[in-house]
Design a protein around this nucleic acid. Structure first.
Lengths: 135, 135
DNA sequence: AAAGGAAGTTAGACGATGTCCAAATCACAG
DNA sequence: CTGTGATTTGGACATCGTCTAACTTCCTTT
């Protein structure tokens, strides 16, 4: 697992360091969409001496290098998504939890973007709630 | 214009007050997607004695009552959208400015939401930049 | 091995956004 | 006028994220 992470970092042009490996180990192997402070908390379990600033620096570096994607979907904080394949998102309005939706599950025929602009990226953002009793 | 706003407030079950009318006057007639502090600044031009807390309270009330929609698209702050018709959004990555895209300009054939969930709302979020403008 | 410099890390200060609270004020029915 | 509930207010507070300046680590060169 460790050599794996090391290789990934190098492939993305990121100079490895103990802290960066520790962050990558967690964030690349989670299925969640953690916030920066969540990452900090998790990483500290295995790597007690890491500062908040480093976690923020590292996550931003990873985003810049294409290892992660930053999601600005919730009011509270920026979330990080280890899944860099194109995909859509479904947000549970009640819990705020975010789920990935496979790219091909939704079909978007996108007309021109906006006069004078070019699209770099797009996705469908869905919001909803658990269907259960009630109604 | 004022009677207009008054009527709109009442139609949405919002008890009018001087401050609420002042906020509504601005926020319902702008084409922008202002942040709460932007609203505060703008409203103060015409209504100098209004506190920040009231602006936040009022905007949240308007969202709750369906007069506005809250957009969580940017890292910095929540934006408010006076256009409550369904539409998509295009975000200029460079400036952070947000543009409305008419609903029918993009076609989405949305498969099922997510097992066990129901969709309340969805939209396409596009991000891009101005094409070959200087640099 | 030693020195020097670049890269990375750190703690804490800082600014911005948004919420909360208790007190003051307002609107209005009786 | 008086009491009651709704609204507003200022400021304290919490959180998120950035910044800075000092410190440490690592790597290169000798």
């Amino acid at each position: 697992m460790k050599p794996d992470v090391l290789r990934i970092l190098q492939e993305h042009g990121i100079q490895p360091s103990a802290q960066r490996v520790a962050v990558a180990e967690y964030v690349l192997h989670t299925m969640e969409h953690p916030s920066a402070d969540k990452v900090w908390a998790e990483v500290q379990e295995n790597f007690p001496i890491i500062s908040r600033a480093t976690v923020y620096n590292t996550l931003n570096l990873f985003v810049e290098k294409g290892l992660l994607r930053a999601l600005h979907l919730a009011p509270d904080s920026v979330l990080f998504d280890p899944n860099t394949d194109r995909h859509h998102h479904f947000i549970d309005e009640r819990t705020g939890r975010i789920y990935d939706i496979p790219w091909n599950q939704v079909e978007v025929s996108h007309a021109k973007p906006l006069p004078g602009f070019e699209i770099q990226d797009y996705q469908v953002v869905m919001r909803g709630r658990r269907r259960h009793a009630r109604r």
